[in-house]
Amino acid sequence: MILLAIDTASALCAACVYDSVARKVFGRAVLDLGKGHAEHLIGVVHDAMAQADVDFSALERIAVAVGPGSFTGVRVGVSAARGFAMALKIPAVGVTTLEAVAAEARETFGARNVMAVLDGGRGEIHAAVYDEAGREIMAPMAMTLADAARMALKHSALLAGSAAAAVAKEAGPEPRVGPERATTDIRIYAELGAAKQPGEKPKPLYLREADAKPQAGFVLPRIRS
């Protein structure tokens, strides 16, 4: 199966073309943007497709990072994935950043329980726990640093993600720390996406409300006809 994977959930804007039979990435493109995913994503996808030397007609599935992460970035990636899937009449699947971070940790440190922990801002930790086979033990949720530390100890989990060091410091000397990034290599999103069964269309995974909200004082009154 030839799959296009997209990740815009963090500062990266990444895409790759992956062959699930050969288990190989044939083309990839990655930009470290911070912001501006909407302006650059199509170009990144084009570069990955050109490197792989495949046409869109060869794609059989789209995989996309659905968060948690940047509100705007996640929306951009999910919208693009759903658009590609609709136009090409192929399935799209969502992969959470947490399961991808955990998968990288297992790949690096071997099969074990992994607690993926991301800095959610406002003092929150976005976390999920997966067993040695990647099965979900604790669903993604927002929690305090103290609660995250307790969960890591409860599950004897390796910590991975952008908040791993902070959670480990809170928990004490026991938890081991793996990769400490807000996302992971686009190849891992592709591998996880290839292994999933297509179902509902991918949608953003938000664990807290957006920072930007309408200012009530500037809302115009509705005109009744």
Rank of each mutant, 00 (worst) to 15 (best):
164 A>V: 02
26 F>C: 05
166 A>G: 00
65 A>I: 09
18 Y>S: 12
15 A>V: 03
153 L>M: 06
156 S>L: 00
104 E>R: 11
184 T>H: 01
77 G>W: 15
51 Q>A: 14
92 A>Y: 10
106 R>S: 06
90 I>A: 02
124 E>Y: 06
203 K>R: 13
136 E>P: 02
150 R>C: 02
151 M>Q: 08
42 I>L: 15
160 A>Y: 01
212 A>P: 02
138 M>T: 08
139 A>W: 00
115 M>N: 05
209 E>G: 06
100 A>H: 10
210 A>C: 09
103 A>D: 14
30 V>G: 01
161 G>N: 02
60 E>I: 00
102 A>L: 05
192 L>S: 02
143 M>A: 10
140 P>S: 14
7 D>H: 09
26 F>M: 14
200 E>A: 15
126 H>N: 06
133 A>H: 09
18 Y>Q: 10
73 G>R: 08
214 P>S: 13
153 L>W: 03
105 A>N: 07
179 P>G: 03
190 A>M: 03
167 V>E: 12
131 D>R: 04
160 A>E: 01
103 A>T: 08
224 R>C: 05
194 A>H: 00
144 T>D: 12
21 V>F: 08
45 V>A: 14
27 G>K: 13
210 A>R: 02
83 G>C: 11
64 V>F: 13
158 L>S: 00
29 A>N: 11
81 A>L: 12
193 G>I: 00
73 G>C: 06
94 G>Q: 10
